[in-house]
Amino acid sequence: MLIDGDLTLRCAHSGERNELWQQIFMNNEWKALDAPYTPLEYQSRFYFRLNLFRRLKEGDNALVIEHKGNVVGYLSCYWEDQSTRWLEVGITLFQSQNWGKRIGRRALRLWIGHLFIKYELQRIGLTTWSGNPRMMRCAEGLGMQQEGCLRKVRFYQGKYYDSLRYGVLRDEWESSKVRPSLAQVC
């Protein structure tokens, strides 16, 4: 569990399975900004329980975001290439009422800090697209550098967008003012 005031990153509870499934696959407002050019692959409740929900319960590579007592999203990480220790992070905030309030930035700050403690890494990355300016500002606000821009590779609603890669190095993170100071790893 990672805590910053009214924000908690934690493992999912068994009783939250249906609520999370509903937010991800039925009330999926979040998909409008999270790679909408890629169709959401629907999962039945059964497969959700075996896949993402299992990961959220275990808490090794995914955690629920709780803000003021409400589940508002989740964080994840995945190996782009584990043999070279190339780790990427992702975040989903379910509803637009929680966007633009720095909830995502605070959550990612805790998550990235935790991952640098947990793993012997020199870099953590995040990929977004130019159609999501809030995510771009979030990454930059965390001290991440834009490391790559694949121009006009995302086609959505008749328009081309760039794919953007951001990253932060361990020494940059450790010397920055955005690194977590209130995080508790339980």
Rank of each mutant, 00 (worst) to 15 (best):
L2G: 04
I3M: 04
G5Q: 13
R10E: 01
R10P: 02
E16M: 04
R17I: 15
E19R: 12
I24P: 00
F25Y: 15
M26L: 15
N28L: 05
W30P: 02
W30N: 03
A32K: 15
D34C: 09
A35P: 00
Y42G: 00
S44W: 11
S44F: 08
L50Q: 13
L50F: 08
K57I: 07
G59Y: 09
L63G: 00
I65R: 02
R85E: 11
L87D: 03
L87Y: 07
L87C: 06
E88Q: 11
I91P: 01
F94R: 03
Q95G: 02
Q97D: 11
Q97W: 02
W99M: 06
K101S: 08
R102W: 00
R102Y: 01
R109C: 10
L110Q: 10
K118T: 15
Y119E: 10
Y119F: 15
Y119W: 15
E120I: 14
E120K: 10
I124K: 01
I124P: 00
L126K: 04
W129D: 03
W129P: 01
W129H: 06
S130R: 09
G131I: 12
N132H: 13
P133S: 10
R134M: 05
R134K: 11
M135L: 09
C149S: 09
Y156A: 03
Y160N: 09
V168S: 01
L169E: 04
L169T: 11
R170Q: 07
E174G: 06
S175P: 00
S176E: 11
K177Q: 13
K177D: 12
P180C: 12
P180I: 14
S181L: 08
A183Q: 03
